[in-house]
Nucleic acid binder design. Structure first.
Lengths: 343, 343
DNA sequence: AATCAATGCTCCATCGATTGCGCAAACATG
DNA sequence: CATGTTTGCGCAATCGATGGAGCATTGATT
């Protein structure tokens, strides 16, 4: 059975004006709440409101925004929806935008630099008032687009140099995480050993900072970082898996302690460990920069760092609300997550 | 250091017209590609294009869409971003919309019926051409809103009665999953026993269908379903955990086999199992309706059903492209996922 | 009764892009 | 040279909502 869907004409304020026997501007005033200022009687207001309800009227935002001055739209671009971190960023962003009567538009760019720029252009065409570039591969390119369109922008998660940036304190987070992994090594392996670092892009700021924290923690523990153990192979699970597999087929030993740079990389790491038979007692001592509930439940006492999304977005919105950022780069301390360990 | 961001005026086609020494309509024609039809010379076209580039011009979609007839915007509402299923729905939706030159707007309603309606209204105000209601608690309410606004709508994941619906074949998926769990019971426990059913809402179509599949599989295995083991307690992890804890404190025995109705419920279940000390050898034989990579890696041989998101969205877009649905409810078979088991 | 203020609304320009219509100029044809 | 035809572009109305300005009523005041 075919199932066509009719396409009726939309009700406008002119239709309502006709039905109510009044003018379009009166209807407009009633429906956008300025009717008291414009001295429309309560009686007419009620009548119009009732008619609007009956007719299922919805204001045409296109027309409304065209006429109004400032845009009520907030744009956000985000790399992926496949992990809890970005998922909660988007969810929190939408909630906070709506609390302010703003309309959030979010779009995902799949870590594709071309798509990132394309999406930013589209958002500008839709007259966003702000553009939040989350985890962008080239934040400054987006900032430039926004500047030339007269739109304010912010960087989130990954910093840029030409717009205010709100990011995690990656150095401190990585330093603490590394120390916790090393402590676990001492406890479980009886010795501290240089850890492997897997995942992320060496070119991005966050990975660089995390490597710096990783290195500092090693030094403070009296350990030298083993450069052959640094594998910033990208974010996709397959990349991490391939990097580990390459090491194995080169005859290199399995690392006994690991710092994994995201849950999405961890996915590849754990998969490889299972396939390679290192999943049980033989599992390395691990930590992950990012949080996922199932990782908590994975066993093996994996340490995690949970980025403080609510604090990050409170900061983002305080900048949006005030129009001013206190400093060009704001670092939010992440939260240590100790895995619940079987007793 | 304060970090203010300037807000310059936006370039319009009138600005470009002035710079190029031509009219706004010529500029418009050049920039929207209709210039050949309107017999604008290639020379002028090139000049305008160059100027637009230089000035960082972006069309004002508000104005453009106001004048144009059909909307190029697709709206989608989605309950949550906290699991792989909805994440991939959104990602696939955005990708496929963009492939068609359409602009996707997605918003998350946190399973809140009020917010759902509110979000739908907002989408209508933004003149979406279609509204895809994903996992809506009250799809028909949204359909009605759309109908009265003359906007076409579709239901995804959870069906409604007044708009075409694209959903998973929940009965078949649950039937197969239940059989697989029962098979694993025979293998690991030496006997097949009635399973527990945890998570979801008894009132929603999917949960009802899955319960039907669950029941049919029990019958076909010669087992009676134990009604005290049916716990459709909602989707939040805490709900599942609380339901299990309530059973425990009532002195009821731990089930030895479980059908969990979503990864998000599984999160609560696994957490409870760990806390209650049932995580190791004592872990029940489990299956989950939905897929998550870390669950694959969790151990314990958890069977999963992965809903076929690409197929579901291909179907959605074939309806959007053609404007016609072959039938009111289209069921997409989900995919069995067998956990990789340690050898 | 005349004046003034308050009340309750309407008129119309405007936001930026689109598009039907039409008007010159260039060119072709007989 | 007169009459089409093509090329190249501009004019002005339009989409729906908004808000400044202004115009009738009604009521209050002296």
């Amino acid at each position: 059975m075919p199932f066509p869907t009719r396409q009726t004409k939309k009700t406008t304020i002119y239709d309502l004006a006709e039905l109510a026997g009044t003018s379009a501007s009166a209807v407009s005033a009633v429906l956008n709440g300025t009717w008291k200022k414009r001295r429309i009687s309560a009686k007419l207001a009620e009548k119009v409101t009732r008619l609007a309800e009956e007719q299922g009227y919805a204001v045409n935002m296109q027309a409304s925004l065209l006429r109004r001055e400032g845009s009520r739209i907030l744009g956000m671009i985000v790399p992926k929806y496949d992990n809890r971190y970005f998922g909660s960023i988007v969810e929190t962003f939408e909630t906070m935008a709506r609390e302010r009567g703003l309309f959030p538009i979010v779009t995902c760019t799949r870590r594709d630099p071309e798509l990132e720029v394309e999406a930013a252009r589209e958002m500008l065409a839709y007259q966003v008032g702000w553009l939040i570039a989350t985890g962008a591969t080239d934040p400054d390119r987006i900032t430039d687009l926004c500047l030339s369109a007269g739109v304010r922008s912010l960087n989130l998660d990954l910093p840029g140099s030409r717009a205010p940036s709100v990011i995690s304190d990656n150095f401190a987070g990585a330093y603490g995480l590394t120390r916790r992994i090393l402590d676990n090594c001492r406890e479980r392996l009886g010795e501290t050993i240089p850890l492997m670092f897997v995942g992320g892009r060496a070119s991005d700021h966050n990975t660089a900072e995390r490597l710096r924290g990783f290195t500092a923690a090693h030094q403070d523990a009296g350990l030298a970082v083993d450069p052959t153990l640094l594998l910033p192979c990208g974010y996709a699970p397959e990349k991490a898996e391939a990097a580990l597999e390459a090491r194995r087929s080169a005859g290199l030993a399995m690392p006994r302690g690991m710092f994994v740079n995201s849950t999405i990389s961890l996915e590849g790491v754990v998969h490889w460990l299972k396939r390679a038979g290192h999943a049980g007692q033989d599992m390395p001592v691990m930590g992950c920069f990012d949080w996922d509930p199932f990782v908590t439940l994975l066993g093996g006492g994996i340490e995690m760092v949970r980025q403080d999304v609510p604090a990050m977005l409170r900061t983002v919105f305080s900048i949006i609300d005030s129009g001013v950022a206190p400093e060009p780069m704001i670092k939010i301390p992440p939260i240590d997550m100790h895995e619940w360990v079987e007793s």
